[in-house]
């Protein structure tokens, strides 16, 4: 078994009974609940497409825009800080880095775990969105959610948004691992999230900013889809590579 696989299995154990593990279902759960309350019990249906497939896409888009604009950047910020905090908080580095395991393995495992958690939450949202849509259909038929949901479209877009979040995950992962203070990671994440909310609405700049790249997958009919996919992947790999180099050469307390 490779060192990385073993480190990932160790990470999974470390996550037992942690807030970070609970946040994987809770974060998309909040978005689903909000949508359920808003659309399931709304007396006046919002103006939307009359075509059932378009109505489904409109519904899924609304759900994912909320997720990718606001919740995902916050989720990545907190998860990165919590994952790194497991080691910073109890001075674990002096134990881990004194093991005969390549230093970068520990940091790579952290970044991989962050990506896995983001992927799990996003895919959970993708799977649960049509289910919530079905509940809304029963509670409030006026929303126009009839027929079968666009599963392939939804899952492919959800996967694309995960790739587009590559740069953001690598960046927040690096900040959280590099600085021991929880405040630094949360400050960077919050500043990025607020800026991303404003910049993300710009057609000209939105697809350039790591915090607003993922949402571009669903905005403006995905006009920047390929750009954010490539940029998220390339920048993500580049930043992750830099993060591994930087963290591995540091002397931790």
């Amino acid at each position: 078994m490779s060192a990385l696989v073993r480190a990932l299995r160790a990470e999974r154990i470390k996550l037992r009974h942690t807030l970070a593990a609970w946040m994987v279902p809770l974060a998309p759960g909040v978005i689903l609940l909000l949508s359920l309350v808003q659309l399931g019990f709304a007396h006046v249906p919002p103006p939307g497409p009359t075509d059932p497939m378009e109505a489904w896409k409109h519904f899924c888009q609304g759900m994912f825009t909320l997720w990718l604009f606001l919740m995902l950047p916050l989720f990545i910020t907190l998860q990165a800080a919590l994952l790194a905090g497991l080691e910073h908080g109890h001075h674990q580095w002096k134990h881990l880095l004194a093991l005969p395991v390549p230093r970068r393995t520990h940091f790579m495992a952290k970044l991989c775990m962050l990506m896995a958690m983001v992927a799990a939450s996003t895919l959970l949202l993708a799977v649960a969105t049509p289910l919530v849509g079905w509940v809304i259909m029963q509670l409030n038929p006026a929303q126009g959610l009839t027929g079968s949901p666009p599963w392939a479209w939804l899952v492919s877009r959800a996967l694309a948004s995960i790739v587009a979040a590559g740069a953001l995950m690598a960046l927040q992962g690096w900040v959280a691992l590099r600085w021991q203070s929880f405040t630094v990671a949360v400050s960077v994440g919050t500043a990025g999230m607020v800026s991303g909310f404003l910049i993300g609405q710009s057609d000209r700049l939105g697809h350039w900013f790591p915090w607003s790249m993922p949402v571009q997958v669903f905005l403006r009919d995905g006009v920047h889809l390929w750009f954010v996919l490539v940029a998220g992947l390339v920048a993500g790999v580049a930043i992750a590579g830099f993060a591994l180099w930087d963290c591995s050469r540091r002397e931790y307390d």
Binding site: M1, A3, R6, A7, R9, A10, I13, K14, R16, H17, T18, L86, H90, H91, Q92, K94, H95, L96, A98, L99, P100, V101
Partner: peptide
């Protein structure tokens, strides 16, 4: 084997799980 200053432990895990983390890393 080493212990620098305070022991490096995950307080939310059991004693066995703490050892399991290190066992996995060391194969």
């Amino acid at each position: 084997g080493s212990m620098v200053e305070t022991p490096s432990l995950y307080p939310h895990l059991s004693g066995r799980d703490n050892l399991e983390v290190t066992r996995l890393l060391l194969d």
